[in-house]
């Protein structure tokens, strides 16, 4: 395989997958620590009605109105979940279940309206994403990675994810102290006058932004996997939050690369002339890494824990 084919067809997809994984993976640390892992699940489901609504209102398939719609839907769902949880006095999981399934169902019905408008949007796409469609035809050699005018021709979804990643990293750096505080002891944060609800809402807004930006490229299932698996893996490897963040970033980014490579070239290695879903494979790889960590992690792995119990 020549360098230019790789750069034109595989490289943008790898970037897309890894960047989507990275921004979700970093924020996922706080979701996992706050026992809100499934917020990522809920938000990535309600993105569907959001983009459909964005389309129906503006009538264009531009990504901006659709992303705004998705962000709006994400915030509405968070508010509704809180409402159902309080009024129904049920556990947060059940409240999420009520809200995100209903909003997803509404999205599915709304989709029928877009079908009437003759535009292609479908549920499969929302779930699976379309990682492989990213191309960078302007590239002709490795040197192009250093040429800004050719880099600018990368798919807009890649550029968008670069921006979102920068925003996510800036957010975590700026609010690291507050995020740590409200995740650990929200009550104490409130007595300090650092509103746990305010910081929690900021976090959810960033989660929604990352989910929406990543969703378009990789589909909602990979988004959910990336919010959870890298953070869960890192959680098993360290007792320091800063280390955990860095580890989760590494796991997320490399799952993106390894997963894509397996999906695109793996079947050929074992003699099949085909390729499998890259988004799916990336999530599977992240899952496998997590399984390895659950078993072999030096201190919190199953083997180490068994040994500790025996000693």
């Amino acid at each position: 395989m020549s360098a230019d084919i790789f750069l034109q067809f595989d490289f943008p997809s790898i970037l897309l997958g890894s960047l989507a994984a990275l921004c979700c993976g970093l924020l996922g640390n706080f979701l996992v620590l706050r026992r809100q892992s499934l917020m990522g699940d809920a938000i990535s489901h309600v993105v569907l009605p959001g983009i459909v609504l964005g389309f129906l209102i503006t009538g264009t398939v531009d990504s901006l109105p659709m992303m705004l719609g998705a962000g709006f839907a994400a915030l509405v769902s968070v508010g509704l979940i809180e409402l159902v949880r309080r009024l129904g006095k049920v556990e947060p999981g059940a409240a999420m279940g009520v809200v995100f399934t209903s909003m997803f169902a509404a999205g599915v019905l709304l989709l029928e309206q877009t079908g009437a408008a003759g535009v292609h949007l479908d549920v499969e796409h929302a779930l699976y994403g379309n990682l492989e469609s990213a191309i960078w035809l302007e590239a002709s050699g490795w040197g192009d990675l250093l040429r800004p005018e050719i880099l600018a021709a990368l798919p807009v979804s890649v550029l968008r994810l670069v921006v979102v990643n920068m925003a996510v990293i800036a957010f975590i750096l700026a609010f690291y102290k507050e995020l740590k505080l409200v995740s650990f002891d929200p009550l104490f944060a409130d007595t300090l006058g650092i509103s746990s609800r305010f910081v929690g809402t900021l976090l959810i807004v960033m989660v929604a932004v990352a989910a929406v930006a990543a969703f378009d490229a990789v589909g909602s299932i990979l988004v959910i996997a990336m919010f959870i698996c890298p953070a869960a893996t890192a959680r098993l490897l360290t007792d320091r939050l800063s280390t955990q963040l860095i580890l989760s970033g590494i796991v997320a980014f490399s799952s993106g690369i390894v997963g894509y490579v397996f999906a695109a070239f793996g079947p050929a290695w074992i003699g099949y002339d085909m390729s499998v879903s890259a988004a799916g494979m990336i999530a599977v790889v992240a899952g496998i890494i997590q399984v390895v960590a659950m078993i072999f992690a030096p201190r919190y792995g199953v083997i180490a824990r068994r040994r500790l119990q025996r000693a």
Binding site: V32, R35, Q36, S37, L38, G40, D41, G93, L127, Y128, I221, L222, I224, A225, F227, I228, C229, A231, A232, R235, A263, V276, S277, A279, G280, M281, I282, A283, V284, A286, G287, Q290
Partner: peptide, 18 residues
């Protein structure tokens, strides 16, 4: 448990996609 649920639902579904 929430993390366990999220892990299983996303990776199993992803395996199904593959």
């Amino acid at each position: 448990e929430d993390t366990a649920i999220g892990t299983v639902l996303s990776t199993f579904f992803a395996l199904g996609m593959v």
